Simulated scan of single mutants.
Amino acid sequence: MTGRDGGADLRPIGNSPVVVLVRPQLADNIGACARAMANGGLFHLRLVAPRDGWPQEKAWRNSSGADRILDAATVHPTVADAVADLHHVFATCPRPRHIVKPVLTARGAVAELRQICARDLRAGLLFGPERAGLDNDDMAEADALVRFPLNPAFMSLNLAQAVMVMAYEWWTAADDTVPRRLMTNESQVATKGRLDNFLTHLVDQLDACGFLRNLPKRPGMVRNLRHLFQRGEVTEQELRTLHGVVTELAIGRRRRGRLETETEA
């Protein structure tokens, strides 16, 4: 089942947590989990007593190219065996249990996991079977529980979604993508000087056509126009387009004026 063609060239990035799927029931879901892991930079997968055995071709078909994760996955008879070489283990727990353990959100868990992995200690994340989740014996192997703060009226997640939440939090905790940016493609954000040049052009033509003929209101109208264009990051290409619009409107006005003059003559 190894060495498939077309899979992504996925390689571990630093020391990352091991994902442990406990008694997973469907190969499709194992593949979807591998896909979610690859999205978030998690590469180590362990399977505890998969219901239908391992390997299963459906897993690879449903992984969207996360073949290397599945190729390297290991199978273990018990949770204790799967986590024996780890230093810290967190277990996802969708429902309250009568257990005395720290309970973390996904984001809080990842903050601790980042610190653990930075110390060159090995950590793991337990995810339970699709139907019932982890039982009390499974969670006894964990240091802490992880619960996702979702809509309390509907907190149901499938296995791959649960893995995706943790993978996303793991990745974004170290990601430096700015929260918001303007996509300008081949253009650039216009400088204040270029924007002022356009506004001068626009106001000149608005004066010429009589739009600003109400002199008491003219200063306020001009300010409103300036506020409108200064509000966002107008690009140079957009300014060139607007210059062309204003120029064509002026040409059209002059053309109509000449036609009217010729008609009167």
Results as ranks from 00 to 15, higher is better:
residue 116 I to S: 04
residue 117 C to Q: 14
residue 118 A to L: 05
residue 118 A to T: 07
residue 119 R to Q: 10
residue 120 D to S: 15
residue 120 D to V: 03
residue 123 A to M: 06
residue 124 G to W: 01
residue 125 L to M: 13
residue 125 L to T: 08
residue 126 L to F: 13
residue 126 L to W: 12
residue 127 F to G: 03
residue 127 F to P: 00
residue 128 G to Y: 01
residue 129 P to D: 04
residue 129 P to I: 03
residue 130 E to V: 09
residue 131 R to H: 08
residue 131 R to Q: 10
residue 132 A to E: 10
residue 132 A to R: 06
residue 133 G to A: 09
residue 133 G to E: 05
residue 133 G to H: 01
residue 133 G to L: 02
residue 134 L to E: 00
residue 134 L to W: 01
residue 134 L to Y: 01
residue 135 D to R: 02
residue 135 D to V: 05
residue 136 N to W: 10
residue 136 N to P: 03
residue 138 D to N: 05
residue 139 M to K: 07
residue 139 M to V: 04
residue 139 M to L: 14
residue 141 E to G: 01
residue 141 E to Y: 07
residue 143 D to K: 02
residue 143 D to N: 11
residue 143 D to M: 03
residue 145 L to Q: 08
residue 145 L to S: 06
residue 145 L to P: 00
residue 146 V to R: 03
residue 147 R to I: 00
residue 148 F to Y: 09
residue 148 F to D: 04
residue 149 P to D: 13
residue 149 P to T: 06
residue 150 L to C: 04
residue 150 L to Q: 01
residue 150 L to K: 07
residue 151 N to M: 06
residue 151 N to A: 13
residue 152 P to G: 04
residue 154 F to S: 13
residue 154 F to N: 15
residue 154 F to I: 11
residue 154 F to K: 07
residue 155 M to A: 15
residue 156 S to K: 06
residue 157 L to D: 00
residue 157 L to W: 00
residue 157 L to A: 06
residue 158 N to A: 06
residue 158 N to L: 06
residue 159 L to G: 05
residue 159 L to R: 07
residue 160 A to M: 02
residue 160 A to N: 05
residue 161 Q to L: 07
residue 162 A to P: 01
residue 162 A to N: 03
residue 162 A to R: 01
residue 163 V to H: 04
residue 164 M to Q: 15
residue 164 M to E: 10
residue 164 M to Y: 03
residue 165 V to G: 02
residue 165 V to T: 02
residue 165 V to K: 01
residue 166 M to W: 00
residue 166 M to T: 04
residue 166 M to I: 12
residue 167 A to S: 15
residue 167 A to R: 11
residue 168 Y to K: 02
residue 170 W to F: 08
residue 170 W to C: 05
residue 171 W to D: 07
residue 171 W to E: 05
residue 172 T to A: 09
residue 174 A to V: 12
residue 176 D to Y: 04
residue 176 D to F: 09
residue 177 T to R: 15
residue 178 V to R: 12
residue 178 V to C: 05
residue 179 P to S: 08
residue 179 P to N: 06
residue 180 R to M: 10
residue 180 R to S: 13
residue 181 R to C: 02
residue 181 R to W: 11
residue 181 R to P: 01
residue 183 M to Y: 12
residue 184 T to A: 15
residue 184 T to G: 07
residue 185 N to E: 14
residue 186 E to T: 13
residue 186 E to I: 11
residue 187 S to A: 15
residue 188 Q to G: 06
residue 188 Q to T: 14
residue 189 V to C: 14
residue 190 A to Y: 14
residue 191 T to W: 06
residue 191 T to P: 03
residue 194 R to G: 04
residue 194 R to E: 13
residue 194 R to W: 07
residue 194 R to Y: 09
residue 194 R to P: 02
residue 196 D to Y: 01
residue 197 N to S: 13
residue 197 N to R: 13
residue 197 N to C: 10
residue 198 F to S: 11
residue 198 F to I: 12
residue 198 F to R: 11
residue 198 F to H: 11
residue 199 L to Q: 09
residue 200 T to G: 13
residue 200 T to Y: 10
residue 200 T to N: 15
residue 200 T to K: 12
residue 201 H to A: 08
residue 201 H to I: 07
residue 202 L to K: 07
residue 203 V to Q: 05
residue 204 D to L: 03
residue 204 D to N: 13
residue 206 L to N: 01
residue 206 L to F: 09
residue 207 D to W: 02
residue 207 D to M: 07
residue 207 D to V: 04
residue 208 A to R: 15
residue 209 C to S: 13
residue 210 G to N: 12
residue 211 F to A: 12
residue 211 F to L: 11
residue 212 L to S: 04
residue 212 L to P: 04
residue 212 L to W: 08
residue 214 N to C: 02
residue 214 N to M: 08
